[in-house]
Design a protein around this nucleic acid. Structure first.
Length: 299
DNA sequence: CACCATGTTCCTTG
DNA sequence: CCAAGGAACATGGT
């Protein structure tokens, strides 16, 4: 369940559950997810420590742990990959089929489930250090964004997936942000003019915030027991009305009508990933976002 | 069997 | 050294 909004909602959900919990045991079922940390070191370092706090950086979860003597604290870095989930279960509950790492917490256990094993739990902070600015923080300014785009010939959609440009945008929200900004996913990053960069900068933040808002209001099943799987961005549940802002407008909607102009949403492949867009709203001569907003207000 | 999937890293090429 | 493109990783759904 992996882009910035989903990770943010998960972090908020887990924080109160983990705070103060002591790790009594560590079981690693798939060494690969430790990303280079040797199993022995991982188990030795974590056993007996206590969860002090939990935060997020881009799509990464940062677990702050303190040693038994409270002398030193350190960070356990988590990433959900494509299919990762994290949740608590009763100690005696059966484990899911793919659970690369499980922490015993007394009468409960903290499970890292990941069918595809693309996720990570590691003591290596390397990946986090390479991340670009946090999109919802002050460090991500239009000027910084412009600097990051100005020398690249890559299509803007591909550039938005580059975590050193801005941390946390993934395949879904890259398409969504470009749609909201009325910008073609194919345009070379360096070709974007200042006004467009500002529109895109705003759109990224707006799309991520709306998704966090939407995700926070949906009742999620993080335990993995029910049918709900925590993928809150896919459609709304029966009886749950989402605002226009909180729905996906183009992602996975190829062949359907653009919610803005009614023309057909298209899919294209860039850097081996699907991109969804409205050729009308995001083509040459497309009406700008501000123009669309003006129109909406008049109705 | 084919193709698709919310992500990142490594290798090659220029 | 850097930028960019593509394969690899691994499992499951349609």
């Amino acid at each position: 369940m992996p882009e910035l909004p989903e990770v943010e909602v998960l972090v908020r959900h887990l924080r109160p559950q983990l705070q103060g919990q002591k790790i009594s045991s560590v079981v690693v079922h798939r060494e690969r997810v430790l990303a280079g940390t040797p199993v022995r070191k991982f188990v030795q370092t974590l056993t007996g420590t206590t969860f002090a706090s939990l935060s997020r950086r881009g799509k990464y979860l940062l677990f702050e742990l303190v040693a038994p003597n409270r002398a030193k604290s350190f960070t356990l870095v988590g990433h959900l990959g494509m299919t990762g989930r994290m949740y608590l279960l009763p100690a005696k509950a059966p484990l899911p089929k793919h659970a690369p790492v499980v922490f015993g917490l007394g009468d409960q256990k903290f499970v890292f489930e990941d069918t595809r094993y693309f996720g990570r739990l590691t003591l290596d902070p390397g990946a986090v250090e390479k991340l670009g600015p946090e999109p919802l923080d002050g460090e991500f300014t239009p000027e910084i964004f412009e600097q990051a785009l100005k020398r690249s010939s890559q299509p803007i959609k591909v550039k938005l997936l580059d975590q050193s440009v801005v941390a946390g945008v993934g395949n879904i929200y890259a398409s969504e942000a470009l749609f909201l900004a009325g910008i073609s996913p194919r345009i070379a990053s360096r070709k974007l003019k200042k006004p467009q960069i500002l529109l895109l900068w705003k759109a990224i933040r707006q799309v991520l915030k709306a998704a966090i808002r939407g995700g926070s209001t949906v009742s999620l099943d993080y335990t993995g027991v029910g049918e709900r799987d925590g993928l809150f961005y896919f459609g709304s549940q029966p009886g749950e009305s989402k605002t226009y802002e909180e729905r996906l407008h183009v992602y996975d909607r190829a062949g359907k009508a653009c919610p803005n102009c009614g023309s057909e949403i298209k899919r294209l492949v860039q850097a081996a990933r699907s991109t969804f867009y409205c050729p009308q709203c995001q083509g040459r001569g497309a009406m700008s976002l501000s123009r669309r907003e003006d129109r909406k207000r008049r109705r």
